[in-house]
Simulated assay, not measured.
Amino acid sequence: MQKQVPYVSQWADPAFNERIAAGMDPCEDPSWTNTGFTDPDDYRFWARRICGLACFQAILGYYGIPALSNKALLARALEENAYRLREDGGVDGLIYDPFLAFVTKDFPLKGQVLRHCDVQQIESVLPEDGFLIWSVSTEIRRPEKKNIRDAGHLILIHAADRNGCRFHNPSGVAPEQADVAMSYDVLERFSSKRGMVIERR
């Protein structure tokens, strides 16, 4: 049976995903302050970088675990070095090992980092009542177009069989936003063969 997993956008309101992805200021979404951010520039900087936290918020929602705001969750992730600010103004992250150490310490969860994992292995590594946070390119939101990257973004895989998987894309646009069904052949184009397994402890 397919899991009923809440969809969480990395921006405030998923109805704005397409416009923000096309270049709209994310602060034009009036609900952006509901994320816990109070400074517009802080929100603009981080909202396009917290795809992994959006995936994690959906996991918390599925398990009924009380969630933090995006800002509060980000603050904890920064404290635990799951994101690292660079001198050039960029960010390294989401860094899997410290992130899993953080979430398994703060929440009743367990997990595993996957490296060099082919997409055809997803069915076997996805727990029945668990998830994969999987590394892909943002270009996966338009799978009909040719892509040039295979990393830099995270999606939440919540179901899989021998033919393909289903996932939520926190920056996705309809019809490639929530409960997206994709064959492994297509997913492979966008995948970097790494991610994290997360499940209830």
Rank of each mutant, 00 (worst) to 15 (best):
E79K: 14
E79Q: 15
E80N: 14
N81E: 12
N81V: 12
N81R: 15
R84Q: 15
L85I: 12
R86T: 13
R86G: 08
E87T: 11
D88V: 09
G89N: 10
I95G: 11
I95Q: 13
D97K: 15
P98G: 11
P98T: 06
L100F: 02
L100S: 03
L100P: 01
A101E: 09
F102I: 01
V103M: 04
V103T: 04
K105M: 07
D106Q: 10
D106F: 06
P108E: 07
L109W: 00
K110N: 11
K110A: 06
Q112I: 06
Q112H: 07
V113Q: 02
V113W: 05
L114C: 09
R115W: 04
R115T: 11
R115E: 05
R115G: 07
H116W: 12
V119W: 04
V119Y: 02
V119R: 01
Q120P: 08
Q120N: 13
Q120S: 13
Q121H: 10
E123M: 10
V125D: 00
L126C: 00
E128Y: 06
D129V: 02
F131I: 03
L132K: 00
L132G: 08
I133S: 04
W134C: 00
S135L: 05
S135T: 09
V136R: 01
T138E: 08
E139W: 03
I140R: 00
I140F: 02
R141N: 09
R141V: 02
R142E: 08
P143I: 02
K145L: 14
K146Y: 06
K146V: 12
K146W: 07
N147M: 03
N147I: 06
N147L: 07
I148Q: 11
R149E: 15
R149T: 15
R149F: 12
R149D: 11
R149K: 13
R149G: 12
A151T: 15
L154R: 05
L154T: 05
I155Y: 01
I157Y: 02
I157C: 03
H158T: 04
A159R: 04
A160I: 04
A160M: 06
R162Q: 15
R162S: 15
N163M: 11
G164C: 01
C165Y: 10
C165F: 07
R166C: 12
R166Y: 14
R166P: 08
F167K: 03
F167V: 05
P170H: 11
P170L: 06
P170D: 05
S171G: 15
V173K: 13
A174G: 11
P175Q: 10
Q177C: 08
A178K: 08
A178H: 09
A178P: 01
D179P: 01
